[in-house]
């Protein structure tokens, strides 16, 4: 699905990713841990193709296609979707209109979709205008449901969300990853599920999201390097007990000339 090889990325003069290797398979959900400033968000932004994240080496292959330097919209059209942490407000653009645009001509029912994230009342509001933390998450999920990506990037799905919303968001994220977004009514879920399963790369600090989804693998990003691959729950447990300091002891392949602390 997604193959990242020796990816090096800079923001301005600062190198933020220092040779990332990561392989996420079809239908797999991968969890990314790491302290603040470790490069997690930079990795997601680079995968989506944001300006300002300069790839200085390595490659990103998505479904066999080299997307390292592909414009953002082409990545989106290939099936990469992203949930934004702090999306901008666009005045005069109604949530409903954006949801319809996300579907790119595919027939969808915005009302039914919005109902799934308890967001019907927001369809006529300008997108993100005065949305609370939880509302932003629900709006992002609604857009992703309409977009129906085959690979989703989630930056901290639990941040700024109260407990009640967490449950809703957790369930919808799960449904999104299970590919159950707009299954034809009456269709037998089981055989479809395997075929439609969406892959995901999720950043989490708290790990709350792990209560709702089946996360297959996880890894810690620390100072621009990936290390410590394990089951997400084990990683979380380890970080809770020992903090991120322990991670430096098992950095996979420090870059040459890199000072290892």
């Amino acid at each position: 699905m997604l193959k990242i090889e020796d990816l090096r990325v800079s923001i301005g003069d600062k190198e933020v990713l220092r040779g990332i290797n990561l392989h996420i398979r079809e239908g797999e959900t991968f969890i990314l841990f790491g302290p603040n400033g470790s490069g997690k968000t930079s990795l997601l932004m680079t995968l989506m193709g944001f300006s300002g994240y300069t790839v200085t080496g390595g490659s990103i292959i998505f479904r066999g296609q080299d997307i390292t330097h592909m414009p953002m919209y082409e990545r989106a059209r290939l099936g990469i979707g992203m949930s934004f942490q702090r999306p901008p407000t666009i005045h005069g653009l109604k949530t409903r209109d954006l949801v319809l645009r996300c579907a790119r001509g595919r027939e969808i029912d915005p009302e039914a979709m919005a109902a799934k994230v308890n967001f019907t009342d927001f369809l006529e509001r300008d997108i993100n205008a005065g949305f609370s933390g939880g509302e932003i998450k629900r709006s992002e999920l609604l857009q992703l449901m309409a977009q129906k990506p085959s690979f989703v990037l989630f930056d901290e799905p639990e941040s700024g969300v109260d407990l009640e919303n967490m449950q809703l968001i957790g369930k919808v994220v799960r449904r999104l990853l299970d590919g159950e977004v707009d299954m034809p009514p009456g269709a037998c879920a089981k055989p479809l599920k395997c075929k439609l399963r969406t892959s995901g790369l999720i950043i989490t600090h708290t790990g709350y999201i792990l209560d709702y989804i089946n996360a297959d693998r996880g890894q810690v990003l620390y100072q621009g390097h990936l290390c410590c691959e394990a089951r997400p729950r084990d990683i979380l447990e380890h970080i809770r007990s020992f903090g991120y300091q322990e991670c430096i002891k098992c950095l996979n392949e420090p870059a040459p000339g890199q000072i290892v602390l």
Partner: peptide
């Protein structure tokens, strides 16, 4: 704002 919409599949 442009990039937000591009991430949803719109060209520039």
């Amino acid at each position: 704002e442009i990039e937000y919409l591009m991430a949803r599949g719109m060209d520039e």
